[in-house]
Write a protein that binds this DNA or RNA. Sequence first.
DNA 1: GTGCAGGCTTGATAATTATCAAGTCACAAG
DNA 2: CTTGTGACTTGATAATTATCAAGCCTGCAC
Lengths: 228, 228
Amino acid sequence: MSIQRIEEIRNIPLFADIGDESFATLTRGAYFQAFPANMELITEGESADFLHIVHSGCVELFSTWAGNETTITTLYENSTFILAATIKDAPNLMSARTLSKSEVIMLPSEDVRWVFERDPAFAMAIVVELSRCYRATIRNMKNLKLRSSLERLANYILKQHHRQGDTLTITLPIEKRRLASYLGMTPENLSRAFKSLGAHSVRVDGQKVTIGDIDALNRFAKPDVLID
Amino acid sequence: MSIQRIEEIRNIPLFADIGDESFATLTRGAYFQAFPANMELITEGESADFLHIVHSGCVELFSTWAGNETTITTLYENSTFILAATIKDAPNLMSARTLSKSEVIMLPSEDVRWVFERDPAFAMAIVVELSRCYRATIRNMKNLKLRSSLERLANYILKQHHRQGDTLTITLPIEKRRLASYLGMTPENLSRAFKSLGAHSVRVDGQKVTIGDIDALNRFAKPDVLID
DNA sequence: GTGCAGGCTTGATAATTATCAAGTCACAAG
DNA sequence: CTTGTGACTTGATAATTATCAAGCCTGCAC
């Protein structure tokens, strides 16, 4: 792995505050891998041999059961995945696939556990990251159970609005069928939901979504800091 | 707090392997509190001043938004709650209420963070517990998104069957309206779902649920170790 | 023992969402 | 430039679930 790569990894919050020796241990056995789009990185049920970190690109966590498939979440730059499975040395509960060309850092789970036990700063970073992931999942579940599909889409648009610099025209970061799956609906229903949000000033053109009246959309969506 | 109580707390897995001094620090400022049924212990949005552990009884974690309310999970003996909020010193994402008379241990969050930084065994116990909670939530979300309401109920019955000693007559641990909320449906629908499961040998009489043909129910429910 | 309240069941109807089919559009491959 | 494929949209219909109402049952309080 190049010196430049190692310095990039050092800047990830998970590693920013840990000791040099700990960092060396973690990166010594690590992989930095580029994957094409639509590649399955891990499969649910498999053992968690590596902790994964998305360096660039886009990765979807999904699950299947009895022929049904659903998107659990979508990960972007500097997101970890299967951290809980790594810590517990348990099988993955989710699969992962790249949605676009992605670079992924893979750290051997044994090294992660070894350093966790010896470096308090790393232990703290791990538990903070795990807490963040867990809380994100609670918010997601609240979104699914407390809101209608229209409300979920409206709040998703508002969230992208903020993430993309408070601009009134956002670009959907993933395909609509993946977004539909994430929001818990079929692609046909997502299409109809976008149409219905026309009543709240939302217009769609391919991957571009335009908000005509941000206050109207806010009034309908009722965003909540404990969910969004 | 009595010596007997302190010994009971010592036996909780979270504390079983930690140093004596760490344990003393944690229990010194701790509370051991009995609450009547239907009492709200914490409220979403509030700061997480204590880590809570259910010593006995039953506690429901729930959330509300725009007049809607949903049950996120139900906790029994030796379950922790708001661990992630405690670690991150962030507001609670969920509220909690007792469903029956309950005894709860409350540890000051500052003490938890203080000991976490100094006792590797406690750090490991915390992160293992957090991983367990997080993975439970992922299973819950998979259950909600991948299964119909009938399938969710069927798998719930099978899970209680195993938890109650593989007996063919189980006792629902909570009221049906709370179970309905947890499974993501209205009480009317839960009633109809129980009725529909009659086709798979399930009979209901108040809080008692009887399974006539465990294989038939298994064939319908298709339990999965990655969900249930 | 009686009355009341809360939980639950059942019926009817409305609303939401899924499914299936067909057509359109854009992009990639040849 | 042409063709084919996959994503998406739209229409029609089926299925699922929510809502509302009414009645029953059980347990608790007086």
